[in-house]
């Protein structure tokens, strides 16, 4: 189940990876300590991968590098897929309505404004937000805001979705519901997903693979073999949660 050694890049030649990190190191300056050191992994298409690890371990930096927001100090990040991101606090623009925020996701798409508006409305409908289209983020609940963020990410039909702790700012019930919605989107659309989470439970419930990011590198890699949907109280799930917990230094 667990692959103790670093991932063997040659094992994934059967399908072209959607993202690959090759010996990637990253730091914010030549005199500042490295945040990531010699990180190598790759993601196959249509997989759901979750990165877990202690705070300050480099999880979010991995996501920023995967999204090309940052450039590695050394090594190579390859990502040629249409990539979108869902943020921890939705990162909506407070002066725009839900519809206008989703339209931001259509900026680089071809089509007339009317066509883009139709797409944005369809994306909102898919997230059950039609009646909230003209509300600003302040008028929406935390869960509704996050769903607007998801609609914004999905409106351009991305191949690769990055999720930066999308449920951590929500209450348990909303987080649970939203994680099921994310899973439904994954099953329906087949978008490759890479999620950063502080919750090992979420990782085991959702992921095909779990990467443990600690000390600035991928310290461990766990394959989750159970079929989805998974139950939080299932013995196999509980055992795997306990196992992953042991790999994380601070826990």
């Amino acid at each position: 189940m667990r692959m103790l050694s670093a991932l063997n890049l040659n094992n994934m030649e059967d399908s072209a990876p959607i993202l690959s990190f090759e010996a990637v190191s990253f730091g914010y300056g030549p005199h500042l300590p490295s945040i990531l050191t010699n990180v190598s992994f790759m993601l196959k298409p249509d997989t759901f991968t979750v990165i877990v690890g202690p705070s300050g371990g480099g999880k979010s930096t991995l996501l920023r590098l995967a999204s090309r927001l940052d450039v590695p100090t050394s090594g190579t990040v390859k990502n040629t897929a249409r990539t979108r991101m869902i943020f921890q606090n939705a990162a909506l623009l407070p002066w725009k309505t839900a519809l206008q925020n989703v339209l931001v996701g259509t900026t680089d798409l071809p089509g007339t404004p009317a066509e883009k508006k139709a797409r944005a409305l369809a994306a909102l409908a898919e997230m059950s937000l039609t009646e909230h289209a003209n509300k600003t983020p302040r008028e929406l609940s935390g869960g509704q805001r996050q769903r607007v963020g998801i609609a914004r990410a999905l409106v351009s039909e991305p191949q690769f979705l990055l999720l930066d702790e999308p449920f951590s700012a929500l209450d348990f019930e909303t987080a649970e519901k939203l994680s099921q919605e994310v899973l439904a989107i994954f099953n329906k659309k087949g978008i490759t997903m890479l999620m950063v989470s502080h919750s090992i439970e979420d990782a085991v419930l959702l992921a095909d693979e779990i990467l443990v990011c600690a000390g600035g590198t991928i310290a461990d890699h766990v394959v989750v073999p159970m079929p989805r949907p998974r139950n939080r109280t299932d013995a196999q799930v509980l055992a795997l949660i306990a196992q992953v917990r042991k790999f994380i230094p601070e826990s």
Partner: peptide
């Protein structure tokens, strides 16, 4: 301006002027 909001413009393909 939150870092995530700054990131939105880049990730969602907005040009520098946009």
């Amino acid at each position: 301006i939150p870092a995530d909001v700054k990131a939105v413009g880049k990730i969602f393909g907005l040009t520098r002027w946009q």
